[in-house]
Write a protein that binds this DNA or RNA. Structure first.
Length: 852
DNA sequence: CGCTCAGGGCCAGAA
DNA sequence: TTCTGGCCCTGAGCG
């Protein structure tokens, strides 16, 4: 009698064989298809072969409409929405795609893929910060402490109360901002750390005005020792690495810097473990706190969950990227520095933001990201204070209209001191036509170039050449709400109300949630209606979280790095164009381009595509009635169909397709579930919150799951993805010099065509998941490992280049993987139980039976 | 040493 | 009761 284990092995072998056969069949089919196509290669193939093709760039329009572009690939779909249909399945029956410009068989891949996911941002939730955990406010020792009470549920909610069951509507994880005034803060796992620093077990007393910043922003005033390495740019400069003995929140135990504020929660965790090497991975939506920033902890956790190891390279990258999660913005390619202790990365980042020397205090973000891979450098940048006057290159008139009088009391200033400045009519103010938008972008662009004094000159000349006068700036509307600007606040010129709003939001840790899709228009009239969107706009316009002083010291100049970046906005046309022309471009690594081009394979289901037939033939395909019948059956059917597409996708991937078939099979067997679930969740991003899209006809809400943990977790995972703000195709073309080799369109209602948009980050992450070198008994383990590392490097480079203001993006992306693996574990168990005893004979069942 | 100006605090009014 | 926003205070940076 065969033991259960033997039986499982047998089944696994069967699944393996089937996977191999599928892969080989795909190969054969591919070859046959290419051979038979001659010049008219179909689009499916166009994206199969990747690499080595360098077609000239083609102009693209971004209206999403297709005109007469022969190169476009049209995927028809009877939908009127522009979902991110990366791997829609059931609509395949309705899908066809037109032939692109004929090309040779071997060059059939020359049609390129235009990628983006246009709906991602539209469905982003309100808070751009996720994945961090802030200290728990236990109580207040100060009567002035802003109360952490529950806000009206309809509009927003305080983070402190966000651990409700209805996590799909939870506010995003808290902003990593400073604690409320004089709060008693508890680091959830930081007893030892806190005891060391405050003398009160587990409690950090944040004293009001009790921190005397060091004169250099480095040492406490009592300490005459040489300056410790300054903090990274994103940290307030008066948070010295030296311990401040008055019970405040900084310390330098083993080189760690415990800072709250922007990075408080994460750093709190990060530094709290005995080895000072922790970080926090949170998953608020799942009400899970995966506190495993320490490599070993991640490792252990993962082992416990899955019985195997994280890929070493992935692990490195996770640890590496934790720096970014802390807002420290590492681009250090030597991940060992992160692994070996946070002291390493603190010191590796030590060249920044010393207010005394102004080392990098105004360095461009791109420089910062590049430089912390270097050991501490003796930088000799000329001093560039981050104040707007300085940043703007030193206007000729020292007594600016942006003096105190219009900084604090803007109304007074406008009425009295600005004789030559006619106060603009309020009706003329509009955030959309504010020169400030362009101005801020100019600041950003200039800072991106260099950190030295030339910035100022260049910026000044830019402003001059673009005709931006000081009075124009002053008279410009607040870029957030359109109100009158009162001064330079938290990194941008803004009005007094937005300044106060931003300050309160950050200081009091408000965590607003927009219930209208996070797309509310923020104007002077509506700014009170949706604080979530208002805060979001504050951030988008460039307000800096780190400008909020965690110690609440008053006075003085800002010393945070002013290398803020702004997203493309609808600035004044001429200026916008100018900025656009001068915009530094970032490039999508070629490898990622090739990967993205393979994304189209999730859509393609042309005639002859076996998937269509399989779909129709699937005995588990229940069609529209599945919604009320057995969604699990529908889920299985959808998963089963996608598996075939998965194989097609895999074998077209660069790096992967060069791996021998045995290893390909093992990698696929290892990751098929993660890939399927990930794609499902990604596809669900445009869906309403709290639901996932199984296929074209079936979507599930949390209620529909009837407590099914897998579905629930998938919904939460989708929510996390939504917050993560994956890139979109528009991003690529707005800021990059990326040119894909073709354009894919989906035919929608009224015979219109919608440009398909793929996310580079999403696509790359899938391949990283696939290329797990920790799979047992790989013949070419080293090769797989190298491939994954290469992918990781590309993705990191891409995320840093695209979002220099969010150095944590890369880490946050990677941290989705263990979360995904946990969901898969639950999902497999669910599906296995479901298919127990079933005589179904398809790939999914085979995989499931062999998986346990 | 005085000025600048950005960040924090206060508080009346609004929601 | 909470939030808003105008006004004022503070103090580091700078000339």
């Amino acid at each position: 009698m065969l033991s259960l284990q033997d039986e499982q092995c047998t089944r696994a072998a069967g699944a393996t064989r089937r996977m191999e056969e599928s892969i080989e069949a795909e190969c054969d089919e591919e070859i046959a298809r290419i051979s038979s196509q001659g010049e008219g290669g179909d689009q499916g193939d166009s994206a199969h072969g990747v690499g080595g093709r360098h077609d000239p760039p083609r102009p693209m329009s971004w209206d999403g409409e297709l005109s007469d572009n022969d190169d476009a690939i049209i995927i028809e779909e009877d939908v009127d929405t522009a979902h991110i249909d990366d791997d829609d399945d059931d609509e395949d029956n309705d899908v066809e795609f037109s032939s692109p410009k004929p090309s040779s068989a071997l060059d059939s891949t020359s049609s390129s893929t235009t990628t983006s996911s246009n709906n991602v941002n539209n469905n982003n939730s309100n808070c751009p910060y996720s994945g961090s955990e802030e200290p728990t406010t236990l109580s207040s020792n100060n009567a002035n402490t802003p109360p952490n009470t529950s806000p009206p549920p309809s509009q927003y909610q305080n983070h402190n109360n966000n651990h409700s069951d209805d996590s799909s509507r939870l506010s995003p994880p808290p902003h990593p901002h400073p604690p409320a005034k004089s709060s008693l803060l508890l680091c959830p796992s930081s007893d030892q750390h806190n005891a060391n620093n405050s003398g009160v077990g587990g409690v950090v007393h944040v004293a009001k005005n009790n921190v005397k910043p060091c004169p250099h922003g480095l040492n406490s005033s009592e300490d005459n020792s040489p300056c410790a390495p300054p903090l990274p740019a994103s940290l307030p400069p008066n948070k010295c690495t030296n311990n401040i003995s008055n019970g405040t929140t900084t310390n330098s135990v083993n080189g760690n810097t415990h800072v709250h504020g922007l990075t408080s929660s994460v750093l709190c965790e990060h530094n709290s473990a005995p080895n000072n090497n922790n970080a926090l991975i949170t998953n608020n939506n799942n009400n899970l706190q995966h506190r495993a920033g320490n490599q070993s902890q991640v490792h252990q956790h993962h082992q416990q969950q899955h019985g195997h190891h994280h890929p070493h390279s992935l692990n490195n990258a996770v640890n590496h990227s934790l720096n970014g999660l802390n807002g420290l913005g590492t681009g250090n390619s030597n991940s060992s520095s992160a692994i070996n202790g946070s002291s390493g990365f603190v010191q590796n980042n030590s060249s920044f933001n010393c207010p005394q020397t102004n080392l990098g205090s105004c360095q461009p973000a791109t420089m910062i990201l590049q430089q912390h891979s270097q050991p501490p450098m003796n930088l000799s940048f000329p001093k560039i204070p981050p104040s707007p006057d300085s940043a703007l290159g030193g206007w000729s008139t020292p007594s600016s209209n942006l003096s105190r009088h219009n900084s604090d009391a803007s109304q007074r200033s406008f009425s009295s001191s600005s004789n030559n400045t006619t106060p603009p009519c309020i009706e003329n103010y509009s955030p959309s036509n504010s020169p400030l938008l362009s101005h801020n972008r100019v600041v950003n662009k200039v800072e991106d170039f260099d950190g030295d004094q030339q910035d100022s000159v260049l910026l000044s000349s830019n402003l001059t050449s673009q005709g931006i006068s000081r009075s124009q700036l002053i008279n410009s509307p607040c870029p957030i709400c359109g109100d009158r600007i009162s001064g330079f606040h938290y990194g941008i010129f803004s009005c007094e109300s937005c300044k106060g709003f931003f300050k309160r939001t950050v200081q009091n840790r408000k965590n607003y949630v927009c219930l209208r899709g996070a797309s509310c228009h923020v104007t002077i009239a509506t700014r009170k209606k949706c604080p979530a969107c208002r805060f979001d706009k504050c951030l988008k316009q460039g307000m800096r979280l780190e400008a909020i002083r965690e110690d609440r010291t008053r006075g003085g100049r800002s010393t945070y790095a002013c290398s803020y970046t702004l997203p493309p906005t609808s600035a004044t046309p001429s200026l916008s164009e100018n900025v656009q022309q001068n915009a530094p471009t970032w490039e999508i690594p070629d490898l990622l381009k090739e990967i993205v081009e393979c994304e189209s394979l999730w859509h393609l289901s042309a005639d002859g595509d076996q998937e269509s037939d399989l779909t129709k033939a699937s005995p588990h395909h229940h069609g529209p009635n599945a919604n009320n019948a057995d969604y699990l059956q529908e889920l299985c059917a959808a998963a089963d169909r996608r598996l075939y597409r998965l194989v097609k996708w895999c074998k077209s991937l660069p790096l992967f397709k060069n791996i021998q078939v045995d290893d390909q099979t093992k990698l696929l067997l290892n990751s098929w579930c993660e890939l399927l679930l990930f794609s499902c969740c990604y596809r669900s991003i445009p869906m309403p919150a709290g639901s996932i899209r199984i296929n074209e006809r079936l979507s599930l809400k949390e209620n529909d799951a009837h407590g099914n943990q897998c579905i629930t977790r998938m919904i939460h995972f989708t929510e996390n993805l939504r917050r993560l703000r994956l890139d979109t195709g528009k991003d690529h073309f707005a800021g990059s010099n990326c040119v894909f080799k073709g354009m894919y369109y989906k035919r929608i209602k009224n015979n219109n065509k919608k440009l398909l948009e793929f996310s580079v980050e999403y696509a790359a992450l899938k391949v990283i998941i696939l290329m797990s070198s920790e799979v047992d008994e790989l013949h070419e383990g080293d090769r797989v490992r190298e491939s994954q590392e290469r992918l990781l490097q590309c993705l990191q480079a891409y995320t840093l280049a695209r979002c220099p203001e969010s150095p944590s993006k890369f880490g946050e992306l990677l941290l989705k993987i263990p979360e995904l693996q946990r969901i898969c574990q639950v999902g497999k168990e669910m599906l296995t139980a479901k298919t127990e005893g079933s005589n179904g004979f398809n790939l999914l069942f085979e995989l499931l039976r062999g998986d346990h």
